[in-house]
Design a protein around this nucleic acid. Structure first.
Lengths: 146, 146
DNA sequence: CTACGATAGTTTCATCTGAAACTTAATTCA
DNA sequence: TGAATTAAGTTTCAGATGAAACTATCGTAG
């Protein structure tokens, strides 16, 4: 009889990673999606704009820093600008570029969502020992450097 | 001035997990998508059918074990059955249930893809120290038990 | 200067996805 | 029994996604 050596999906690392990642992301997303009418891509764009506040990032800089493609960013920005959560003006020297900034309303949403996200992260980390927490950070640095 | 405490996306655990998970899954998927005309959901269905070979799983059992929803499984099965990689017959006692099994062609694909997947897993683990490897497994058991 | 290639961003299109509605079959309980 | 629920699976519909084509602007080599 042939030995087919089937893959044990439930012990297969890439599979387990994707389960974990989906569960964690969705747990957080559920908290703000309905409450703030904010998709995950929109939230990521806002988080990056918040982090680089004052720099007036362009759409492609946002795409680079979120690791999302430019189409996704463009669409997220369309909604965010329509909702007046982000202001968009043209770059002085380069009319192709946009200059993006969180508006006051955008900051308000950010300041409400950021603590939610942080709480989730803490809850997650609290399930691990101190050693495991350290290891997790080291592992992420090695496998998916920023 | 207000302290907005922006989220540092690049150090935010759920975000980094999703980056890692996407990179890993896509790296593997690229290898078999074109080569075998096989989507990731289809591959996962095949992997589960392989693992529980002889049990004659139903579609909802597949859905439960892959953590995919029944719609996704239904569609993957439609394609897999059309490609004669999976056989589907009705359950004896319960005509609602299907009884699913990999065909010979299905096994052939499985036996070609499984080693690819395993190689990727090993390559990934090889970047980590023995301690980190142990920690990663422990972390996954705690955060996303199967 | 101008013609060409590169870059920023949007639109289109074809596919993927998941919630809800639907179909058929089995089970429960009055 | 047989009416009402529940379960398995498919279809529908509406939104998300990403590759490729497109528009507009910029930089640069001739």
């Amino acid at each position: 009889m042939v030995d087919h050596a089937p893959l044990e999906l439930e012990r297969f690392l890439p599979y387990r990673l994707s389960i974990l990642s989906n569960r964690v992301s969705q747990a957080i997303a559920r908290e703000y999606q309905d409450r703030f009418d904010l998709s995950m891509t929109e939230w990521r764009v806002m988080a990056v704009l918040a982090r680089y506040d004052g720099h007036g990032l362009s759409a492609s800089e946002v795409a680079a820093r979120t690791e999302m493609d430019k189409v996704a960013v463009s669409r997220a920005l369309t909604r965010l600008v329509a909702a007046k959560r982000v202001s968009r003006r043209a770059h002085d020297g380069d009319k192709r570029r946009s200059v993006l900034r969180l508006s006051a309303a955008g900051w308000k949403v950010h300041d409400a969502v950021a603590p939610l996200a942080r709480t989730h992260e803490r809850t997650m980390l609290a399930q691990l020992s101190a050693d495991e927490q350290r290891a997790l950070l080291a592992i992420l640095d090695k496998l998916a450097p920023v």
